[in-house]
Design a protein around this nucleic acid. Structure first.
Length: 552
DNA sequence: TCTGATGCGTC
DNA sequence: GTCGGAC
DNA sequence: GTCCGACGACGCATCAGA
């Protein structure tokens, strides 16, 4: 197989990693991309964008940390202890592979079959095809075939590409900039098209072949979702807009983009996976609606007038067998609140208030319903609706600018979300783990517990919420109070108290308290509190029961 | 045949 | 989903 | 302002191995 060598790509990545200059990254990569043919350009973009298989391909590589580390062990001939030491040091599997291969006695030191970009890409595609008994070995063999022919630096980038964590200061944003540079078009033009047709590789090839103008929203192909920004109070929202705004309930469900063209129906998830298959009764309901359209909606489950909690709803996803019983047990409905395409017309650029008018033309019925919305003018009205939403068992409200177009992929301030104020618990740190990537080598991940009479019961983990500085202070302190060093993790004396915020409490067997927190984040370190003053398992149970009362 | 580990998507 | 930080 | 990386819990499918 001829073509550009993978080592070229690996070396470009290395240069990108070494410089912090954005312009330099862009010109280095851009110049490389410029000279690739269509097939190689497409493959390179997919490799760099952790997009080896587009989401609607409905296949997965199913190779992760575990498989890769066993391969690294095998070809480097290092001991498990050594592997671990190096891994904790780098906090990155790719860097680990490089270091171990450099000093290891490689299985096959002679490079006989130089890797090309296409060979790598095609091998990864092939790996996704293996399934069934023995597939783990087949995947591993195919990978070994790549790795024995890889130099240390190539091995590093193979690993990084497969895990999807390049960590070289280049992700979709800069990749797009480099591509715009290579194609000689303004970045904004490229961005606009990518949001509408979220497949960088395909967009690039189409533009390269002079088809820029033809790229637009397409029925039965997913487009990016418009996203919302959080605000923390009705006052903040009212002040920000200072005009009449549209308010909707916010549902704790699954985002769904519904496409209908003639009798073809496809539903896409937030990450653009097709999920129609899991939702047969929803598809059936959609098929009875008239018209050709793309709708934005949230799928939730309501039973006996009560909202089912998210973890129950989740049982409807990624399921192979969907039987009658399940459909009755977790009945679905799609709450529709926006329209992007309607009867032959692109309507996503129209202002929201006009799109809401269009929605009235659709004869919603069965499991598909038009989402409630109303105009609000001030913080008091926002507050009122917010309370109403919580009482109904929903998550909060969405506030939207009636003059705004639907901007795929953008998290702008045209849509604002207001969620329930979180509860907090005072907990004590009982263990800590080393971080990854930029947090390599520092104890940045904390396991914490609440009090159960004279015992401590673990209830969750968190790192989010602390500044780098606070993390460093904790790191030093934790090393001082270590009881046991497990290599990747340390057990510490229960001394440091944290105030942890969360959205809700769920029953769980992950931790020995029997509970877990949803969206835990650290509010602050309570240096002023002693571990005797932390919250108890009774309080946890109380919060859990309180929330349960409004659920089915 | 069952169980635990793994990967990956949802939020 | 969450968050802090870099640009 | 915007993007990005580094992280949480959950449930399902799959596969290896007991």
């Amino acid at each position: 197989m001829n073509g550009r060598y993978f080592i070229e790509l690996a070396e470009i990545c290395e240069k990108i990693k070494e410089t912090t200059s954005k312009l330099e990254k862009i010109s280095k990569l851009g110049n490389f991309l410029k000279n690739l043919n269509d097939e190689e350009l497409s493959a390179t973009i997919r490799l760099l964008n952790s997009d080896i298989l587009p989401p609607w391909y409905n296949k997965e590589i199913q190779v992760g940390y575990s498989t890769l580390s066993s391969i690294i062990l095998e070809i480097s001939g290092s001991s498990k202890e050594e592997f671990f030491k190096v891994y904790v040091k780098h906090g990155d599997l790719g860097e680990t592979a490089e270091e171990l291969l450099k000093k290891g006695k490689a299985l096959n030191p002679l490079v006989q079959d130089k890797l090309t970009i296409l060979k790598v890409y095609k091998t990864l595609l092939k790996i996704s095809e293996y399934s069934g008994e023995g597939s783990y070995q087949s995947k591993k063999n195919a990978l070994l075939n790549l790795f024995v022919n890889a130099s240390p630096i190539e091995a590093k980038y193979l690993v990084k590409i497969i895990t999807g964590e390049l960590r070289i200061g280049l992700s979709e944003g800069l990749l797009e900039e480099s591509l715009a540079y290579a194609l000689g078009i303004p970045l904004t033009n490229l961005r606009e098209k990518v949001l509408i047709l979220p497949d960088l590789s395909e967009v690039a090839i189409r533009i390269k072949n002079g088809k820029y103008e033809e790229i637009d929203l397409e029925l039965l192909r997913p487009t990016s979702f418009m996203l919302a920004e959080p605000m923390s109070s009705p006052e903040e929202i009212a002040n920000y807009f200072n005009k009449e705004i549209i308010a909707e309930y916010k549902y704790d469900g699954i985002r769904a983009q519904i496409h209908k063209k003639d009798n073809k129906i496809r539903i896409f998830s937030r990450r653009l996976d097709e999920i129609s298959f899991y939702l047969p009764e929803v598809v059936e309901s959609i098929s009875s609606l008239k018209g050709v359209f793309i709708l934005d909606s949230e799928i939730i489950s309501i039973k006996n007038d009560k909202v089912l909690p998210f973890n129950i709803l989740q049982r409807r996803l990624r399921r192979k067998n969907i039987d009658k019983k399940l459909i009755e047990e977790i009945p679905l409905r799609a709450i529709v609140y926006d329209v992007l395409f309607y009867n032959g017309k692109q309507v996503y650029k129209l202002p929201l208030r006009e799109r809401k008018e269009l929605l009235k033309n659709i004869d919603f019925k069965d499991r598909i319903e038009l989402g409630f919305f109303k105009i609000v003018r001030n913080s008091a009205e926002i507050s009122k609706l917010f309370e109403e939403s919580l009482n109904k068992g929903f998550e909060g409200i969405m506030i939207k600018d009636p003059d705004s177009p639907y901007t795929p992929g953008k998290r702008g301030k045209a849509w604002i979300k207001l969620k329930k104020e979180f509860d907090t618990l005072d907990v004590v740190i009982v263990a800590a783990e080393y971080g990854h990537g930029k947090r390599a080598g520092i104890l940045s991940d904390y396991t914490f517990a609440v009090k159960d009479n004279n015992e401590l019961k673990v209830i969750g983990k968190a790192y989010s919420g602390l500044t780098d500085e606070e993390m460093e202070i904790l790191d030093r302190k934790l090393r001082d109070i270590t009881i046991e060093d497990l290599g990747y993790k340390i057990i510490v004396k229960p001394e440091i108290v944290l105030e942890v915020a969360f959205d809700s409490i769920q029953i769980s067997d992950r931790h020995d308290s029997g509970f877990a927190l949803r969206f835990p984040r650290i509010k602050r370190i309570r240096w002023d509190k002693s571990p005797h003053e932390i919250d108890t398992i009774e309080k946890v149970r109380e919060i859990y029961e309180r929330k349960k009362a409004i659920f089915a």
